Simulated assay, not measured.
Amino acid sequence: MPLTVSELAIYPLKSCKAVTLQSAKVNLSGLEFDRRYMLIDEQGMFVTARNHPTLTLIEANIAQDKLLVSHPDQAKGITLQPANFSCRYADTEIWENKVQGQLTEASVDTWFSELLQMSVRLVYFGEQSERFTSRRPDRPVAFADGYPFLLTTQASLQELNSSGPQTNEMARFRPNIVISGNQPFAEDSWKRIRIGGVIFENVKPCERCIFTTLDPVTAERSKKGEPLKTLAKFRLINGEGVTFGVNLIAENEGCIQVGDTVEIIEYQEPHSYADKR
């Protein structure tokens, strides 16, 4: 069975609900429009659904050069348009990475502050914003946690679901690219792959956090700590974190689409995991 792309997704606002796509433009910094907006607190620290689960219920849809944002708890949505944003930038921080975020509009800040019941500002990854990945400091990344692309596979999700008490949706893991047709966790051994005309490199396994315990439909947190509890039985790395999916960088730009064949250009020796299931 050939390896193919089964899903593509972006998250225009960091922590928002996924926007599924049939095709996507690949920029070096990530899929076009992916994680270009982010909330920050009064100290400039990034704000995510790890501490504010309701953010996962935000719908943020692209409409030409605008972003249409809504939430079930807000009577009215808002429309964001970069042409109307401030020329000023704010100092922000993501996992100890300093980055300048372009300020948006005061009314937008009010909308989000009312939603979260705390003072926040929305920033945009504008022309003066600049950030790079840690292991590949020559490769840009926007407001994603650490790397511009996250790849997961259907087979690995099925293996996880057959190993624990809970059926997990792929949406919990917030991937950009989902692959079908491989054996479970075969992606660990893919060093370089080609999708369409774009070549991606697997930089590192993606260590997962409490975000994955949020139900993507209700934003409720798992009381049993799933799926982290099950992953810890067979995907524990360095005695600390658990992994699911791989972080990628792109070697070139182009377009990819659902149904594209995935070619493995180069393999690598995967990390060895102790299986305690």
Score class of each variant (00 low, 15 high):
221 R>A: 01
229 K>A: 12
69 V>F: 01
181 G>A: 10
252 N>Y: 08
275 D>F: 12
130 E>V: 14
94 I>E: 02
151 L>Y: 05
115 L>D: 09
223 K>H: 05
131 R>N: 13
134 S>Y: 11
247 N>I: 00
37 Y>S: 05
115 L>N: 08
54 T>P: 14
76 K>W: 02
124 Y>V: 00
218 T>N: 09
5 V>L: 09
132 F>A: 08
207 E>Q: 07
13 L>V: 15
264 I>F: 02
273 Y>I: 12
184 P>R: 15
142 A>R: 11
274 A>Q: 14
190 W>N: 04
64 Q>W: 00
200 F>Q: 09
39 L>D: 01
178 V>C: 06
5 V>H: 09
167 T>Y: 07
265 I>S: 13
274 A>V: 15
135 R>F: 11
206 C>P: 06
74 Q>M: 13
50 R>L: 00
143 F>K: 13
226 E>K: 01
6 S>H: 13
145 D>W: 05
223 K>A: 09
266 E>L: 09
256 I>N: 00
174 R>F: 00
27 N>P: 10
59 E>D: 15
77 G>E: 03
62 I>T: 09
244 F>S: 04
186 A>H: 14
151 L>I: 07
82 P>I: 00
197 G>Y: 05
10 I>H: 09
174 R>D: 02
131 R>P: 11
71 H>V: 01
257 Q>T: 06
